[in-house]
Structure formats: structure tokens, C-alpha cells
Simulated assay, not measured.
Amino acid sequence: MGHRIHSVAYRDPQTILIVDDDEINRGILDNIFADDYQVEEAENGRIGLEKILDTPEKYCAVLLDVMMPEMDGLETLRHLKHEELLDEIPVFLITAEANDAVMKEAYRMGVMDVISKPVIPYVVMRRINSVVELFRARRSLSNQVMAQQSELLRQAEQIIRLNRGMIEGLATAIEFRSAESGDHVRRIHDITRYMLKYTEWGEGMEDYDIEQIAQASIMHDIGKIAIPDAVLNKPGRLTPEEFEIMKTHTVQGEQLLEKIPELKENLAYEYAKDIARHHHERWDGRGYPDGLKGDEISPWAQIVSLADVYDALSCKRIYKDAFPREKVVEMIRDGSCGVFNPRLLDAFFSVEDEIAKMYDANGKEDAK
């Protein structure tokens, strides 16, 4: 992994490193750049490389001789390329051996320029200054882009949190209106997510899709907002006519979601529409509103349907007391509350012990 020069201490590096075994040559180059830069010297490639690797963010340019003892200029270049530093620090070869083979190899590795000895001061100053300024401008632009990207990401995350909060608030408000705890939607979310992540029912699904489905699940009963209080909060059994009204919350939920343009931009939207309409369909085709059968029902609508039944049986409602856990499991297994996909039931019962732990004293109302 290469080094990076965007450190706090040297955000705008001002030091040129001269690597040359000839003290006179180092002195000439030092004299050229001393008025405008801090200058450091190294007497061979190995020493120069150690300086660069120790604080790469410090250097705005490296002037590198080719013929040196211990480590020559091309070998030093190879190490800098391996460390991915040639894109961060401009390196110039200063050499009397500027033959085609040396130049070709140097440019292939990423050297910025090859300058022949003896150097002409105003020429070498102009060529190096131009590249240093180019790197500074690129670094500044990169920092601005990174800052802008960071701010855009922060704003996007804020919008996502706001959207999620609004959706959860609406779903919870509907639960309170139907005299139920807002914990219901949280548990449906958690059961849906747990089964998709930890059973074969979610096999092949990406984590991102699982999170979107779990988010969509909390809107499964959003259509209840259109159901009259007299039906929604009736303490006893519904009449056939009242039950027909109650059943419309599925279609009403889908239609409501379609009428909120902002929700369409939420990535959970399509899942939410399908779940709202179809979470009361049953595997044997005896559900509603469309009488879908078998795999005509989407996997996410099936799982929310089962989670909804499990939670309804496990918790006290205005029209019933909570059933003991053993009774809940028995009723789901024998089809007392509708027929479910056998594979879904296998997946559910494989983790039901863990799901039951969600129903503790703080997360459940009067559950047994």
C-alpha cells in the first residue's frame, strides 16, 4: 500500500530533496533552489529513499542523479514506484548519462522529467517550478473534492435518517391509532431482518436488499389509516361486513404509498407496496386481496405475513389476550392462522428460539 501526502503537518510541502553522490553538484542545485524552497541533501539513492519513506508528505520534489554508489537513480525509482509515491511526489532525473535507454526506463516508471548535466539554472528552475505548482494545484483540487464528497455523503446520510424517521413515525402512529404498541412495527422489522440474514429464506440476498426489505416491512399496515375507528378498534369479533372493510387496508396501503411522491425515491418503496398489498395472502390461495397462491406471493410478503401472525398471537390486542409461546407455535404449525409455505415454516422454526427472545419484559405487552 503506498504512502499518502495529505497529512496535517505537511499539507503544502515545501522541501526539495537533492540526491547526488557529488557534493559539488548538490551544492549547485542547492544554490538554485535555496531562496524558494527548503532543501535537503542525500549522498546516494539508499539514503535518499530512506528520507522519502520516512516522511513522504514532506517533499514537493526529488532531484535524483542516475550514477551513484550503493543504490543508483533507476533502482531508487523502482522502489518509489513500488511504494506508489511517483504519483504523489514529482521526481526528476538530473544526469550526465541521458542516453535513450536510461530515459526510456525512467519515463516508463513515471519520472516527471530528465534534465541533463551540466544544468542551466533558469531552465531547471522553470521546469521544476512548473511541475511543483501543478502538483500543488492538483492536491488542492483533490482536497476540495474530498471535502465536497464528505459533505454530500453527510447530507445524504441525514436525508436517509430523516426519511427512515418519517416512515417509522407514520407506521407507529397507525399502531397507536389501533390501540397497539408502536413496538409492533419494530418487532416485524426485527423478525423480518433476522430471518433474511440468518436462515435459508434469505439465501442469495445481499445485505443491502435485506435492510431495504426490513425497512419496508414496517409499512405493512399503513392502509389501516383509512379504516374507521369503529372497525379498527372494535373489542369483539368483526362481523362479515366489518371484516370486508378491514381487509381493504391492504389495497388502501398500496394506494396510499403510491400517492406520496417523496416515498417513491426511497429504495424500499417497491418492497413496501408489495408487502402492504400482499401480507395477508396465504400459501393455499385463501388469503386476500388477490387470492395469490404459492410462489405467486413474493418472498418478502410471505415473511412479513408470518412475522405479523406470530406477533399478533404473541401479544395482547384489544380483541384478545396474548397466547403462551407453546400455543403460538402450535397454531402456526397446524395452520390455525392460515397456511404458510412449508420451507418458510422450516426456516422460521429453525430460529424461533432466538426470535422469542425479542419478546422480553421491555419489548412485549403481556406476552406469556
Rank of each mutant, 00 (worst) to 15 (best):
I222R: 09
V309L: 09
P118M: 07
G27V: 00
E168W: 02
I16N: 08
V124N: 04
P228L: 07
W201R: 15
M67E: 06
V66E: 11
T248M: 13
H82M: 11
E23D: 07
D183Y: 00
V39R: 05
H220R: 14
E200Y: 09
H79Y: 13
E133S: 01
E241W: 08
D308I: 09
V19C: 00
E23H: 00
I260P: 14
Y319F: 02
M219G: 13
Y271K: 12
K357Q: 14
E157D: 12
H280V: 02
Q38M: 08
E41P: 00
G253R: 14
Y122A: 07
T76K: 00
Q212K: 11
R325N: 08
L292N: 11
D100V: 15
I225L: 10
A61E: 00
P228V: 05
A347Y: 02
E23T: 03
E265V: 02
G110E: 04
G223I: 04
K224D: 10
S298R: 13
R164V: 09
G335I: 09
V102A: 08
Q144M: 04
L292T: 07
Q302A: 09
L257E: 13
G285V: 05
Y208D: 12
E200G: 14
T199G: 13
R237I: 15
I94F: 01
I16Q: 03
M146R: 15
R4Q: 06
S314Y: 01
W283L: 07
E151A: 12
I210W: 10
V123I: 12
C60L: 00
N362F: 02
T172K: 11
S178A: 12
I89H: 03
R187H: 09
L306A: 09
F323L: 15
L263D: 05
N44S: 06
V145E: 01
H184I: 01
D229K: 15
V185R: 01
G287F: 11
Q215A: 15
N99T: 15
R177A: 08
W201M: 14
T248V: 09
Y319E: 09
V91G: 05
P118F: 02
